[in-house]
């Protein structure tokens, strides 16, 4: 990985963190169901170039896993003990659906995750519900169900080691992993 792509990734991660903090601050209002207005599935994913710190940078190769992670977003977040797709997740998931429409050979696995404030087996079931909510959303946006696998990691795969609400919020997520077919 070149310096520039590393840098771009880091910036993207910071942006993700900021977004999730914002989401956190706006809670705990009840989240509307997934019928909130979203861009149509046919709309292409935003063509933002990756931040270019130097003249040599080219950003992510379109259709690559990195393109998906940096330019679309591979993770959306959930409320405590809830599995409904949140309003702030619908633009990300709509962009995922659009990206998947553009790259029809890509197979994905949706991984449901829970925070540590629940017991192990219950959290496995909760993670399954989250993964399936995302799958249903993507299918409703035209992604073939046959391209989507789901799994729950329960609380076994946290992305933030912290022990406060901001860490737990990040760990309550659904992660869309590219299994195959990316460039």
């Amino acid at each position: 990985m070149s310096f520039s792509t590393k840098h771009a990734l880091r910036l993207a991660l910071i942006a993700t963190a900021a977004a999730s903090m914002a989401a956190c601050a706006s809670r705990p209002k009840p989240t509307p169901p997934i019928s909130t207005p979203t861009p149509p599935a046919s709309e292409p994913a935003p063509e933002r170039p990756a931040p270019t710190p130097g003249p040599v940078s080219q950003g992510a190769v379109p259709g690559s896993e990195q393109d998906f992670v940096v330019n679309v977003g591979d993770r959306v977040y959930f409320d405590t003990d809830a599995f409904e797709v949140r309003a702030d997740a619908t633009p990300v998931l709509s962009a995922q659906a659009a990206w998947l429409a553009r790259y029809p050979n890509v197979q994905i696995r949706i991984e449901g995750n829970a925070d540590e404030r629940g017991t192990r087996e219950y959290n496995l079931a909760l993670g399954s519900r989250r993964a399936n909510s995302i799958r249903d959303f993507l299918v409703s946006r035209g992604v073939a169900a046959s391209r989507i696998a789901t799994i729950s990691y329960g609380k076994e795969r946290p992305i933030d080691p912290g022990t406060d609400e901001s860490a737990w919020q990040k760990n309550r997520n659904g992660h869309t992993a590219i299994v195959s077919g990316a460039r």
Partner: peptide
């Protein structure tokens, strides 16, 4: 078809109870 988890033996050892998840429902 989906995930399986939470296995336990029956007291006589002849059965195993467990959870099966399908389309998000366990």
């Amino acid at each position: 078809p989906g995930m399986v988890y939470a296995p336990r033996f029956s007291p006589d050892g002849g059965r195993v109870a467990f959870a099966v998840e399908k389309s998000g429902n366990s």
